[in-house]
């Protein structure tokens, strides 16, 4: 019986060790990846900012997308804005590397438009939260970055326009 007891102890110890090591592997990996990625993420939000501000400034005959956005809001007709937004962002974000884009507008936290790419969520792991535990199991995850502008609307309203992009890292 004693010899059996020694083998069992050995196996149980190995199992326990495997569990402990796996847990700490995840913890160490997440902690080290998150920190570096956090500041990169923060700085690279500026890239999304450039795309967003240029979207708003895009010229349309004598006006800009910003003016079209206001007219769409007042006329409650967003078809032209939607077509234009799709043309712009489907060109900027090629489906291979950046399959996800989403642009939305909110006034007083009430959404007044939202357009996004034709995106199949099942194919990717969305890592909205940098501490997403799944990130360590998949090579191919979608790093999402988003940026917002609070822009002036007539009658001194403020509209929050948010652009989100999801690129394979």
């Amino acid at each position: 019986m004693k010899k059996g007891e020694s083998a069992i102890t050995f196996v149980f110890s190995l199992i326990f060790l495997a569990i402990v090591i796996t847990i700490f592997y995840a913890l160490f990996l997440l902690s080290s990846v998150n920190k570096a990625n956090f500041s990169i993420n923060q700085v690279s939000l500026s890239d999304v900012n450039i795309n967003l501000i240029n979207y708003l400034r895009t010229p349309l005959n004598t006006t800009t997308v910003y003016d079209l956005m206001i007219n769409s809001y007042y006329n409650n007709d967003y078809r032209e804005l939607e077509t234009l937004s799709e043309n712009i962002f489907n060109r900027v974000y090629d489906n291979e590397r950046c399959p996800l884009w989403n642009i939305k507008g909110e006034i007083n936290n009430e959404k007044f438009f939202e357009f996004e790419s034709k995106f199949d969520a099942r194919k990717y792991t969305l890592s909205q939260n940098p501490r997403n535990f799944l990130r360590i199991f998949t090579d191919d995850y979608l790093a999402t970055r988003s940026s917002s502008f609070d822009i002036v609307f007539p009658d001194n309203k403020k509209a929050k326009i948010t652009l989100l992009e999801g690129c394979v890292e």
Binding site: S6, T9, F12, S13, L17, I21
Partner: peptide
Amino acid sequence: NKKAIFMPLLSFFV
């Protein structure tokens, strides 16, 4: 046949 303490101690130590 002894009381095996090496491996449990190793697990605890790790």
